[in-house]
């Protein structure tokens, strides 16, 4: 079997023929590729966590300085309530010294209302 051209030249001719082929780029292909890009963008936006707006509770917490401040505030409130319920003697003595003794003020004129007097 005889080839009139050298094998290498024959091979190069075929490569050249392939290189010369027309390769159209159709709009439909560009559209498909952009559709893929849009899909990837949408998926990425769904998986990326977005910063949500803080709620009212979070904003109030921020206003007082966060959780550390809140716990201090809570402790002070509890202490205040307890002092009001069961004041230490020192507190009672202090108020007496300021106000000059116990003052009794009837809220209702109960005796008069019941006609016990006179």
């Amino acid at each position: 079997m005889k080839m009139t051209k050298t094998d290498e030249t024959a091979l190069e001719d075929v490569f050249a023929r392939i290189r010369a082929e027309d390769v159209p780029v159709r709009d439909a292909l560009l559209d498909r590729i952009m559709l893929d890009a849009d899909t990837v963008l949408a998926e990425r936006q769904q998986t990326t966590p977005t910063a949500s707006r803080p709620g009212l509770g979070a904003m109030l917490l921020d206003a007082i300085g966060g959780w550390p401040s809140f716990s201090g505030l809570a402790a002070a409130t509890v202490a205040g309530v307890w002092i009001g319920v069961a004041p230490p003697d020192a507190i009672g003595n202090l108020s007496a010294s300021i106000w000059g003794g116990t003052i009794e003020v009837p809220l209702l004129e109960s005796d008069a209302l019941l006609g016990l007097e006179g």
Partner: peptide
């Protein structure tokens, strides 16, 4: 895309197959 689809067409010899490869390659890029 023009370069990608041309390379695929030269290797595969078929326009539809070349377009599938081009789309696949670009998807990997995205």
């Amino acid at each position: 895309t023009p370069r990608v689809v041309a390379q695929a067409k030269r290797m595969l010899g078929n326009q539809a197959d070349a377009e599938d490869v081009a789309q696949d390659a670009m998807m990997r890029l995205w």
